[in-house]
């Protein structure tokens, strides 16, 4: 049986490097995490007190719900999710070809455009570093 992705040291190492690079590109990053589609924290970098496992579970639910909305409206899976609030912006998106979600919290003064482009660039770079996911691991979403 394959090793769970959140315990794969190669994925964790590559993920940490990618998230650290993201923080350099966008110093407004407060928190960034990679999580499995089913809500396990793989790796995170943080400048705040955040319960990583709970954030991962919530991000997983939000990702799945946004996919369900996309399906309901017949517009396809969501490419990214943005949540804006007075204290910061949350952006999350899938790593292309992987059952992994990147979720990041940015300071409120950061422009959504820069936050989104930084997150996308990080996701694309990480996708190039990781081996193709097995088809079983990419079973979701399943309506």
């Amino acid at each position: 049986m394959n090793q769970p992705i959140h315990q794969d040291q190669f994925v964790i190492g590559e993920g940490h490097a990618a998230l650290s690079g993201m923080c350099e590109l966008a110093p407004s990053t407060i928190y960034a995490a990679l999580l499995t589609d089913d809500g396990f924290d793989i790796v995170h970098v943080s400048r705040t007190q955040t319960e990583a496992s709970r954030f991962a579970s919530m991000s997983s639910s939000i990702q799945a719900l946004s996919d369900a909305v996309g399906h309901e409206l017949r517009i396809g899976d969501s490419e990214y999710v943005i949540m804006g609030s007075a204290q910061g912006h949350v952006i999350q998106l899938r790593i292309p070809g992987q059952p992994i979600v990147l979720a990041a919290l940015f300071q409120p003064h950061e422009t959504l455009g820069k936050a989104l482009s930084t997150a996308r660039l990080t996701a694309e770079r990480l996708a190039q570093r990781l081996p193709a996911a097995a088809s079983a691991a990419m079973a979701a979403p399943n309506f």
Binding site: F40, S61, A136, A139, A140
Partner: peptide, 19 residues
């Protein structure tokens, strides 16, 4: 809201409900 199941060693099924 199904996602790929990382815990196949706990319950051997391909997907699990996450929301």
């Amino acid at each position: 809201t199904e996602a790929a199941n990382s815990e196949r060693h706990v319950v051997d099924k391909a997907t699990t409900t996450v929301a």
